[in-house]
């Protein structure tokens, strides 16, 4: 499938668009935000459905608890804040009031990863996927562009159970078809190939598409699969692809620790071990910079994927 950038957009705007659409079609959808309405693009929902929008102030722990109470009583709350505050700051609330209580809360986690950029490491969570996927019952989704984030938001409302929806701040290529395919828990085969498998999530999917072009010039026919749902993993699709190609690269905007790469490694170690490489931040905290500078500095880009592919091919 050929993918074309139809114009750069931020994934958070895809969330905002999806949330507004949900407001028009599902009266049970409510939204909460911890003083970041503009950042999360929640203005349109807040203005259109003021009775269903709850400004929570800079008090994320309370917001998650309020959302849990709304969920238990039949609402479908979307609780929005930055990914760092949506995991690290409220972990015990997510654990007890949301996941252990089986509360149907949707966590809208924006500005995830290094591409938050200039604000620096205090706000750049590179650990949130690890934290979210460690929680029993939590579904974890990291869409790759505006269109997919909008579809993931719509799908989240129809998905029963706690769900962590991770998206970002910068404008990035919008390239997936407006109508998907998108199905929670089902990996999306973007391009079949024989020589190695690239499993990419979030902003790294576009980088992987760029990498495919470079690899093709080197006569490497890579398979590209979009893993938008990190938990539960589409185990069947990943195992089948690893069996076919015999080599796997994962690509994500996250630390190695606890991210997509380790999730895939754990799966393949049990079922079908193959040589693997992980495109992810190796260690430590981030720093201030533009999103592009930071992605390049930490190798979270097409060149980083190509380099790992070369390592695998040289084995």
């Amino acid at each position: 499938m050929t993918m074309t950038n139809t114009g750069n957009k931020d994934t958070r705007s895809g969330f905002g668009a999806g949330l507004y659409e949900l407001g028009t079609i599902n009266p049970n959808v409510v939204a909460l935000c911890a003083d970041l309405i503009g950042s999360l693009k929640m203005e349109k929902f807040a203005e259109s459905f003021p009775e269903r929008f709850f400004q929570s102030g800079i008090a994320e722990a309370n917001m998650m608890g309020v959302a849990a109470g709304m969920a238990v009583t039949g609402k479908i709350p979307f609780a929005g804040t930055f990914a760092e505050f949506a995991t690290g700051r409220v972990y015990d609330q997510l654990r007890q009031s949301v996941c252990y209580s089986q509360a149907n809360v949707k966590i809208a986690a924006s500005h995830a990863g290094i591409t938050l950029g200039e604000d620096g490491a205090t706000h750049q969570t590179m650990e949130d996927i690890a934290l979210a996927r460690a929680l029993p019952h939590m579904t974890v989704i990291n869409p790759c562009d505006y269109n997919q984030t909008r579809l993931a938001t719509l799908a989240a409302a129809n998905w029963e159970g706690p769900l962590y929806l991770r998206f970002g701040r910068p404008s990035v290529p919008n390239f997936t078809p407006v109508d998907g395919p998108f199905e929670i828990g089902k990996a999306w085969m973007i391009q079949p190939g024989e020589d190695l498998t690239i499993l990419a999530t979030g902003h790294l999917v576009w980088e992987a598409l760029e990498a495919l072009k470079i690899l093709a010039q080197k006569r490497i026919r890579a398979e590209l699969i979009n893993i938008h749902t990190i938990s539960p993993l589409d185990e069947k699709a990943i195992i089948e692809s690893a069996r076919k190609t015999g080599a796997v690269i994962t690509a994500e905007e996250h630390l190695v620790t606890g991210g997509l790469g380790e999730a895939v490694a754990g799966l393949l170690a049990r079922h079908n071990p193959v040589p693997m490489r992980m495109v992810a931040m190796e260690e430590g905290f981030g720093q201030s910079g533009t999103p592009r500078e930071l992605m390049d500095l930490y190798g979270l880009n097409a060149a980083g994927i190509v380099a790992k592919a070369s390592e695998l091919r040289l084995r």
């Binding site: 309020v66 849990a68 109470g69 709304m70 238990v72 609402k75 609330q93």
Partner: peptide, 12 residues
């Protein structure tokens, strides 16, 4: 955590 959850239920 209980007061927050109760607030959510009451708003609901």
């Amino acid at each position: 955590q209980g007061l927050s959850v109760a607030c959510g239920a009451a708003l609901s």
